[in-house]
């Protein structure tokens, strides 16, 4: 039985420049059917090449316009990341500035308020009126006077008050003359504390 060339072999043999396998060459020499088939495929290949070349044939302007379009789009794409990174840098800068401002404000508020004797005193008075344990460590407490105090866990106002009492007791128990200005300062602070305390009590009763 004669085995004819298959489609792949015909396609491989179709180009005029194709180097034919000796077996294929031998078969083609002896088989009219395969020779005709190869002729058909070769013609088809030439026609398709011509047709595709014709279909893709465009005037020079078309190719120039295409080159220019590619050039423009590449240039635009190159500019795009630069613009994006500048925008990103600006956003990062703004975010950093905002964070720094916020952090600064919070720190300033906490320091300023905890150093303010009046605020401390007001909080001490408030703490005296409310049962212990109401203030949760690490939370911000709103006093009746409207000021905000940060509760650091060990009630800051209470410890300050205790410290003042301790200093006063120490000084009362025979302090050297050199410490008399400190003694006066402690007395002043305690008076202010007591006055605020009374004022808060009155306002709360009203």
């Amino acid at each position: 039985m004669k085995i004819h060339l298959d489609e792949l072999e015909l396609m491989q043999a179709a180009p005029a420049s194709a180097e034919l396998d000796p077996r294929v060459k031998l078969h083609l020499a002896a088989c009219d059917e395969c020779r005709a088939a190869l002729n058909q495929v070769s013609t088809l290949r030439i026609r398709m090449n011509d047709a595709m070349a014709l279909a893709a044939d465009q005037p020079d302007e078309f190719w120039h316009r295409q080159q220019a379009a590619v050039r423009t789009r590449i240039a635009a794409a190159q500019r795009e990341p630069v613009r994006a990174s500048r925008g990103m840098l600006a956003a990062l800068g703004a975010a950093g500035l905002a964070t720094a401002l916020l952090a600064g404000t919070v720190v300033w508020n906490v320091n300023h308020r905890s150093n303010d004797p009046l605020a401390v005193a007001a909080h001490a008075a408030h703490a005296a009126q409310t049962p212990q344990g109401n203030a949760t460590p690490g939370t911000v407490n709103q006093t009746r006077a409207g000021s905000v105090l940060y509760n650091s866990g060990t009630n800051a106002a209470d410890s300050d008050h205790e410290m003042l009492v301790a200093i006063e007791q120490e000084l009362d128990g025979g302090a050297p003359d050199a410490l008399s200005p400190a003694m006066g300062l402690v007395s002043e602070v305690r008076k202010a504390q007591a006055a605020t305390s009374v004022r808060l009590k009155k306002s709360s009763k009203q």
């Binding site: 595709m52 070349a53 279909a55 893709a56 465009q58 190719w63 295409q66 080159q67 590619v70 050039r71």
Partner: peptide
């Protein structure tokens, strides 16, 4: 590179897509 291959890529895309405008766009 564009000048060397644009015709060939366009032809390949045209044969596949059979749409000249689309082949042009996709070549770019």
């Amino acid at each position: 590179v564009v000048r060397s291959y644009q015709r060939r890529i366009y032809r390949t895309l045209l044969g596949r897509l059979r749409d000249p405008d689309l082949a042009d766009n996709l070549t770019q």
